[in-house]
């Protein structure tokens, strides 16, 4: 490295908000957000499949937009807010109750929107971002919304139905 450049090679500490909680990780600049989530924070919902931004299995929401965490450097997420599949289900206020699934997760179960399930976390996060920007999408808009997420099982028709069903559930939940 040229000596007159600032040194930044070594690991550094960064803090980001993941699913509404502050997390600090100690990472090299080459660490992707995906690896930081999976390896450093133990959040293995986002999947590592192609690792080249082609399959969508690593989709998370950064700020309010769906992104590929495999093509995002963790060091560039300092101070940012990240949502992953693990943050969707919410605690039920009633004592002793289990987590309550998010409407999109509920819709995926209702519509049988997966077979092997490996792409599902990415599909759901892509749909969450879509519905936040467009609460009442058409079928074509849903198709475009998940066009960056591959499903090798070919569960697409049910994924589309689940997204439309989730939109309906979220609208009626108001």
């Amino acid at each position: 490295m040229p000596s007159n450049l600032p040194a930044g090679h070594s690991r550094r500490t960064i803090t980001m908000t993941v699913n509404d909680e502050q997390h600090t990780v100690y990472v090299e600049p080459r660490r992707t957000l995906l690896d930081a989530l999976r390896e450093d924070l133990g959040l293995t919902g986002a999947k590592k499949v192609c690792d080249l931004g082609q399959c969508g299995a690593c989709t998370v929401i950064k700020g309010n937009r769906a992104i590929y965490s495999c093509l995002t450097l963790a060091v560039e997420c300092a101070g940012q807010s990240i949502q992953t599949i693990e943050g969707l289900a919410q605690a039920d206020p009633a004592p002793g109750s289990q987590l309550r699934l998010h409407a999109i997760q509920q819709a995926f179960i209702e519509c049988d929107a997966y077979q092997c399930g490996y792409c599902t976390p990415g599909q759901i996060m892509a749909i969450k971002a879509l519905l936040e920007h467009n609460p009442n999408p058409t079928l074509d808009e849903v198709k475009m919304g998940v066009s960056g997420n591959l499903c090798r099982c070919g569960a697409y028709p049910n994924i589309f139905r689940a997204a439309l069903r989730a939109a309906e559930l979220l609208r009626t939940a108001g």
């Binding site: 040229p2 450049l5 090679h9 090299e28 600049p29 080459r30 560039e76």
Partner: peptide
């Protein structure tokens, strides 16, 4: 996995150009 690299945040376009100029002099 990517080879290791340094990572620097630029605060201005001029600073980014200067860093490119110094580092890519050769």
């Amino acid at each position: 996995m990517m080879k290791p690299f340094d990572h620097v945040d630029a605060n201005s376009a001029a600073r980014a150009a200067a860093l490119l100029g110094e580092g890519n002099q050769a």
